[in-house]
Amino acid sequence: MAITVKNRRVGIAPRKVRQVCDLVRNKKASEAIKILRFCEKKEIALMLTKLINSGLAIAADSDKYDIDNLVLTQIFADEGPTLKRVQPRAQGRAFRVRKRSSHVTLELKEA
């Protein structure tokens, strides 16, 4: 049985989140946290670290899992709602700015 943790409506584009998710996929939870600690994309790394820690807390409460052997089997970022804004430009024009968001899902299983 797996532990599934979700973080919805994260204010970061899913394309950027997927780059960091690819670094920690199929790694042990402790190793993934070490990788994220030194990742250059700090905001995304912090969000993913909190998500992993949340999954580990759920595992610790249930007493069914060995925390040392938990592996991130699935981690992916789906597209969330897009906020559409207007950026004023020269000569009365307006450009559309799309502020994208993402839904991040993480699954922990015992190895």
Results as ranks from 00 to 15, higher is better:
1 M>F: 13
1 M>W: 12
4 T>Q: 11
6 K>H: 09
6 K>C: 07
7 N>L: 10
7 N>T: 12
7 N>V: 09
8 R>L: 10
8 R>K: 12
9 R>N: 14
10 V>H: 04
10 V>T: 06
10 V>D: 03
11 G>F: 06
12 I>V: 07
13 A>N: 06
14 P>T: 01
14 P>F: 01
15 R>Q: 04
15 R>K: 06
18 R>Q: 03
18 R>W: 00
18 R>S: 00
20 V>Q: 02
21 C>Q: 00
21 C>L: 02
22 D>P: 01
22 D>S: 04
23 L>S: 00
24 V>Y: 01
24 V>N: 02
25 R>I: 06
26 N>C: 05
29 A>R: 05
30 S>F: 07
30 S>A: 09
31 E>C: 06
32 A>E: 04
32 A>F: 07
32 A>S: 08
33 I>W: 06
33 I>E: 12
36 L>N: 02
36 L>I: 03
37 R>G: 08
37 R>D: 10
37 R>C: 04
38 F>V: 02
38 F>R: 03
39 C>T: 04
39 C>F: 01
41 K>G: 02
43 E>K: 08
43 E>Y: 08
44 I>A: 01
44 I>Y: 02
45 A>R: 02
45 A>W: 02
46 L>E: 06
48 L>C: 02
49 T>F: 05
49 T>Y: 05
49 T>N: 10
50 K>I: 01
50 K>N: 06
51 L>M: 08
52 I>F: 04
52 I>A: 03
53 N>R: 14
53 N>H: 14
53 N>E: 14
53 N>G: 12
55 G>A: 10
55 G>E: 09
55 G>K: 08
56 L>Q: 11
56 L>G: 11
56 L>W: 11
56 L>A: 11
57 A>P: 08
57 A>H: 09
61 D>W: 04
61 D>E: 13
61 D>K: 13
61 D>M: 08
63 D>R: 15
64 K>S: 14
64 K>G: 13
65 Y>K: 13
66 D>A: 14
67 I>G: 09
67 I>A: 13
68 D>L: 11
69 N>A: 14
70 L>Y: 12
70 L>M: 12
70 L>N: 10
70 L>A: 08
70 L>C: 10
71 V>I: 15
71 V>A: 07
72 L>W: 07
75 I>K: 07
77 A>Y: 00
80 G>M: 08
82 T>F: 15
83 L>D: 10
85 R>H: 06
86 V>E: 14
87 Q>V: 11
87 Q>Y: 10
88 P>C: 05
88 P>A: 06
89 R>K: 14
89 R>G: 13
89 R>N: 14
90 A>E: 07
92 G>S: 04
93 R>Q: 05
95 F>K: 15
96 R>H: 11
97 V>D: 07
97 V>A: 09
97 V>I: 15
97 V>R: 09
98 R>A: 13
99 K>W: 10
99 K>E: 11
101 S>M: 08
101 S>V: 05
102 S>Y: 02
102 S>N: 03
103 H>N: 05
104 V>F: 02
104 V>K: 00
104 V>A: 02
105 T>L: 03
107 E>I: 09
107 E>N: 06
107 E>H: 05
108 L>I: 09
108 L>N: 07
110 E>I: 11
110 E>M: 12
111 A>V: 13
